[in-house]
Amino acid sequence: MSEPVIASMAEVRSHLADVLERARRDETPTIITRRGKEEAIVIDIHEYQRLRRLADRVEESWLNTRADESESEGVEGSVSLEEMAALLRAHHG
């Protein structure tokens, strides 16, 4: 992936086809700015899908690690869903 091009919203609006082609063909992202502030980025759809898969794998790994940690700590002090519902009903009357 190439270094991103930085372009204003007005520039992107005027040259959207070029921005899309650059993302697809050259794998060059375009960072879109508005009033000098970075707002969004245009990337190729395949790169977006790759990043989503990566993010999903990282999230799944993180959740599995948390579940393993919870399991290793045991169930002492934990309550069932039914017990929690009863406690909430009692507390909120």
Rank of each mutant, 00 (worst) to 15 (best):
T33Q: 06
A23E: 01
S14H: 09
A67M: 13
Q49H: 11
V19G: 04
S2I: 00
E38A: 15
E38M: 13
A67P: 00
I43A: 04
Q49T: 11
V42K: 00
S80H: 04
D56T: 13
L20P: 01
R25F: 09
E27R: 04
R22L: 06
L20A: 08
G93F: 03
E76C: 07
L88Y: 01
E82M: 08
A23P: 01
S14L: 13
A40G: 12
R66F: 11
E59Y: 07
S61L: 12
G77A: 12
L88T: 01
D44T: 03
A17D: 15
A55L: 12
E39K: 10
D44M: 02
M84A: 14
H15S: 15
E11T: 04
E3S: 12
R50I: 03
I6Y: 12
D56M: 14
E82Q: 10
R25V: 15
G77T: 11
S80R: 09
V75A: 14
E69A: 12
R22C: 07
I31F: 06
R35K: 14
M9Y: 08
S2T: 00
E38G: 12
L81M: 10
E73T: 08
L54P: 01
R13Q: 15
D26T: 06
M9H: 08
E71C: 10
W62A: 15
E47H: 02
I43M: 10
N64V: 05
V79A: 13
N64T: 08
I6G: 04
T28M: 07
D26V: 02
D44K: 00
G77C: 07
V5W: 03
R13W: 05
V5K: 06
L54A: 10
D18V: 05
G36P: 03
D44I: 01
P29A: 12
L51W: 07
D18M: 12
Y48A: 07
S8Q: 03
M1P: 00
I32K: 01
V5F: 06
A85W: 05
M1A: 10
L88N: 03
A7P: 03
A85L: 15
L51H: 07
L51G: 03
I32F: 04
S61R: 13
A7I: 03
R53G: 06
V19D: 01
R89D: 12
S14E: 14
L16Y: 09
E82K: 08
V5C: 05
V58F: 10
V75S: 15
A86I: 07
G36E: 09
E82S: 11
E38P: 13
A17G: 11
V42T: 03
S80V: 06
S80F: 06
I43F: 02
E47P: 01
S61F: 09
K37Q: 15
I32R: 00
M9S: 14
P29H: 00
P4V: 01
I41C: 07
D18R: 07
L54I: 05
R34F: 11
R89G: 03
M1Q: 05
E76Y: 09
Y48I: 02
E69F: 06
S78K: 12
A7T: 02
E60S: 14
V79C: 08
